[in-house]
């Protein structure tokens, strides 16, 4: 009955994300994608008609950089979040459905992984194995985000397991994995979409964090790498706000968008969470 509160955050979230995507479109319309190349323009120009967001000190057009960086960062985030949800769902379902020793092992693994500050491990990996591609980055980042999904899915499966339709499926002789895939999974889809958004948030924060430390795929233009370079070449000290501010603003919008959409999906998937509680 109180489904409506989801609409408002959904619209706010979509507006933020729309703004991010619009930046990409604007980049492709207003400047040529080739302007991301080094010294394709005069370096250190403040914004003007030819370069709406100015140029940075290697002579790259900032709007073109943003148009290239946003899809790259989104790719890593979505891949990282997606892989994390797949790993988490498989582990959570296995633990929740089979219980016993399997459950104990998976639960302990989740507890241990939740205790370890994942950025620390990522830093060690990043420092030890340089030169990573965007997809490699996505898979590494997934290591930071699978625990949440595993926990939530397990809890859900524990309640679903006792429902009538699962018992009937069991009595009719369906195997464990088929029950998981055919009976449990479809019921989890609203949850999974909310979990996916949260995993994407975790993955994005981790990716950008690593990149800001200079541990990202350095050959590719991403939002985090742009911030790293702006800091490295002291853009803020040189008054070049058009260098560091666009990636920061885009990321703030991205996080806001994901936050509101995650909230909306949460309240759709879990109506009890509506009202006062988070």
């Amino acid at each position: 009955m109180r489904r409506r509160p989801a609409t408002v955050p959904l619209i706010i979230g979509a507006t933020f994300l729309g703004g991010v995507l619009l930046t990409v479109v604007a980049g492709h319309v207003l400047v040529s994608p080739d302007s991301t190349a080094m010294f394709s323009a005069v370096p250190n120009l403040p914004p003007d008609a030819a370069h709406p967001l100015g140029t940075q000190s290697q002579g790259r057009d900032m709007l073109a950089v943003m148009a290239a960086a946003i899809p790259a960062t989104l790719f890593v985030s979505l891949l990282g979040g997606g892989v994390a949800v797949i790993i988490g769902t498989i582990l959570g379902m296995t633990a929740g459905y089979f219980g016993g020793v399997v459950d104990g092992v998976i639960r302990t693994a989740v507890d241990v992984a939740l205790t370890i500050p994942t950025l620390a491990v990522l830093i060690l990996i990043g420092a030890s194995f340089p030169v990573v591609s965007l997809s490699a980055m996505g898979f590494i980042i997934a290591l930071t985000a699978w625990m949440g999904p595993a926990r939530v899915v397990r809890a859900q499966v524990l309640t679903l397991r006792e429902r009538e339709f699962v018992r009937i499926a069991k009595l009719s002789g369906l195997g464990g994995f088929r029950i998981i895939a055919l009976e449990l999974l479809p019921n989890l889809i609203p949850f999974l979409s909310a979990i996916f958004v949260n995993a994407v948030v975790t993955a994005t924060a981790a990716t950008i964090g690593l990149e800001v430390l200079g541990l990202g795929p350095r050959q590719t233009i991403t939002l985090g790498n742009t911030i790293f370079e702006a800091l490295y070449y002291t853009a803020m000290w040189r008054g070049m706000w058009w260098w560091w501010a666009p990636p920061v603003i885009v990321l703030v919008c991205l996080f806001q968008g994901l936050f509101f959409i995650g909230k909306a999906l949460d309240s759709i998937a879990n109506p009890r969470a509506l009202g006062a509680t988070t």
Partner: peptide, 21 residues
């Protein structure tokens, strides 16, 4: 709540610009 959705390091960059530059 909405500020909490933004990672610390981005808040740090914004605060640095606002109050030091």
């Amino acid at each position: 709540m909405t500020i909490s959705a933004v990672p610390f390091y981005l808040l740090a960059l914004i605060l640095l610009y606002l109050f030091a530059f």
